[in-house]
Structures are given as C-alpha cells and as structure tokens.
C-alpha cells in the first residue's frame, strides 16, 4: 500500500447509464488526504450518483472507485475507514438519535458508548433521547455528522452538507471539515454553493453532464482559465484606448464601462499614458470560482 496513501479516493473510468442517459460518463479523478476537495457541478451533473457509486450504493455500469486502494465493499467494517453523509433525513422518525447511532455501532462492532461520544462532539447530547421526528434540519445534519464519525474514519464523503443549514450551522460545518482535513484525513464534499466552496475547499473537481471539466487546486483552476483576469476601465475615450492596446486585447463595452481581457492592468495604464487617454477608473478584476464554474459548465444543460 505504498502507491495509495491511506484515505486517498481514486475514481477511474466511472460510468453509469440510466437507460439511454449517461448520468456519469467515464469520470476519473483523485482526492488527496489532508485536503478538503470540493466536488462541484450544476444540478443533475451526476454528483450524487458518483458519490453513491464510490460508496457501493449504486452499481456502476463500468469503471471503479477505491478508497485507500480498496473498493468500498471490500473494506472490512467500512465505516471505520469512510464516513458518509448523503441525506439529512435518513433515520427512522420514531427512533431516538442515540438509538440510531447505537444500531450502527452494533452492526459495525463498535462499542455502544461511541454513540454518546459522537453526540457530545456534535452538540446533540441534550436531544439524544428525543425522537428523530422532532429534530430540526440543523440537528439532523449534526446527527448525520455524528453518524459519519462513529468509526473514526480516515475519509469523509459529504453530499451537499450545507443544504438547509443556517449561517451559524454552515460555519460550524466548515470549521469541522477544515479541522478534519488538518488532521491528515480526506474530505470530499459536493456542493453547488460556490462561494461557500471557495472559502472551504483546497482542491476542486468540477463535473458537468457527468463528465470531468476541471480538477486541481482552487487557485490553479481559477488561474488556469485563459480569461482568468479582466481589467475594468472607465474612460470617455474608449476607442482610442483600445486602438492603443493593440490586437491582443479583447474588449467589451457595457454602459460606459470597458472590460478588457488578455492584458494586465499595468499594461492598460501604460498604454493609456502613452496615448494620452483620460482614465476615470482602472481596476484589475480577479475572477472567482463562480465565474470559472459558470464558464466551464456553460451550455451543458442540466436536464438531459
């Protein structure tokens, strides 16, 4: 087990057809331990199907996924290796949160006291004996986290964990996942909340229509775009400035604002000075993950 670090998730050639629809199409990527990896894609891109195939809940049409070098089904007591949160409402309504966890402990051969420890960790101890039906959405997510952590796993897989959480809950979740990754564990978290992901993730995997679009560190993915930087200019003499910049600069005009790409802000400033063009505003706009995401996934209809 030298080639695959503990907790590393490797997806190779994963494909799932539903009838004629290719929900996931020859998808390959790697998720490294010690980092938070955002798994991004528009609704219907195949994120949930991919995660469920990694976890052996959905059978792939072809391809495979491994965690620490083994398929999920081949892991002995998988919840000791991988923790997963797939949906908030996955407990019997008439059962207490504590018993929900104890049942999993029993099945995985963990001591039942582990359930109480995890309830304490996620701050649910006061509601431990309350029935699941009475839990708020935030409490359900916390129970999901507790469930995922029962086996003290080296990898966490979460599907849209921020759904339905209030700002405080989102912050709590973010801190928890960052902490988890800082301990050297793997965190793979799917989301369509891009602002949230930019704050949280170290790496991203972006898919659309079931296919891989981009993969890598957040900064690299953003910088890697050809049009990663734009310069916004306000000037009464736009045409003269564009002429002075030469043919490399691409531009668009909107409401008296000139957007330039393919040139840097200092080059624009220098050109304006040479040409004697008056500038009212000169701003280098760094593009964020959301712009990159929209650009990468543009035209790939979510509904197929």
């Amino acid at each position: 087990m030298t080639s695959t670090a503990d907790g590393q998730i490797v997806v190779s050639g994963l494909t799932k057809h539903y009838g004629r629809v290719r929900a996931v199409d020859d998808l390959s990527f790697t998720v490294q331990p010690g980092r938070v990896t955002g798994f991004l894609g528009p609704n219907g891109a195949g994120k949930t199907t991919t995660l469920r195939m990694v976890l052996n809940l959905v059978t792939p049409t072809s391809g495979a996924a491994t965690i620490s070098g083994q398929r999920y089904a081949d892991l002995a007591d998988p919840i000791r290796h991988v923790g997963a949160i797939l949906e908030a409402s996955s407990a019997h309504k008439g059962r207490s949160g504590r018993n929900h966890l104890r049942i999993q402990c029993a099945a995985a051969g963990l001591p039942l006291t582990r359930a109480d420890e995890m309830l304490e960790l996620v701050g649910l101890t006061p509601a431990a004996k309350r029935k699941f039906r009475g839990y708020s959405l935030g409490m359900r997510q916390r129970l999901g986290i507790a469930s995922a952590m029962l086996g003290n796993p080296s990898a966490l897989i979460l599907d849209e964990p921020a759904n339905g959480l209030d700002p405080e809950g989102i912050r709590w979740m973010r801190d928890l996942l960052r902490h988890f990754a800082s301990e050297g564990r793997t965190v793979l978290v799917s989301s369509h909340l891009l602002g949230e992901m930019e704050q949280l993730a170290d790496d991203v995997v972006i898919i659309a229509s079931g296919k891989l679009v981009a993969q890598g560190a957040v900064d690299d993915v953003v910088k890697g775009m050809s049009t990663s930087e734009q310069v916004r200019v306000r000037t009464p003499d736009a045409d003269k400035l564009v002429a002075a910049l030469g043919p490399d600069a691409k531009f668009s005009k909107d409401n008296g604002v000139l957007m330039l790409s393919g040139v840097s802000a200092p080059e624009v400033g220098a050109a304006a000075l040479r040409a004697g063009v008056e500038l009212h505003e000169l701003v280098a706009e760094r593009r964020d993950l959301e712009d990159v995401f929209l650009e990468l996934t543009a035209g790939k209809a979510a509904i197929r």
Binding site: L55, N56, L57, A73, L75, S90, A91, H92, Q104
Partner: peptide
C-alpha cells in the same frame, strides 16, 4: 422501514454485504 425512512443508505453503508 429501510426504504420508507431512508435508512437503507445507512444500513448498507455500515454493511455493504
């Protein structure tokens, strides 16, 4: 119950066999 309360996911995650 496993399907009605969506606990099948948790059950089969804990025991893939």
């Amino acid at each position: 119950n496993e399907f009605f309360h969506q606990t099948a996911t948790t059950t089969f995650l804990t025991t893939p066999q």
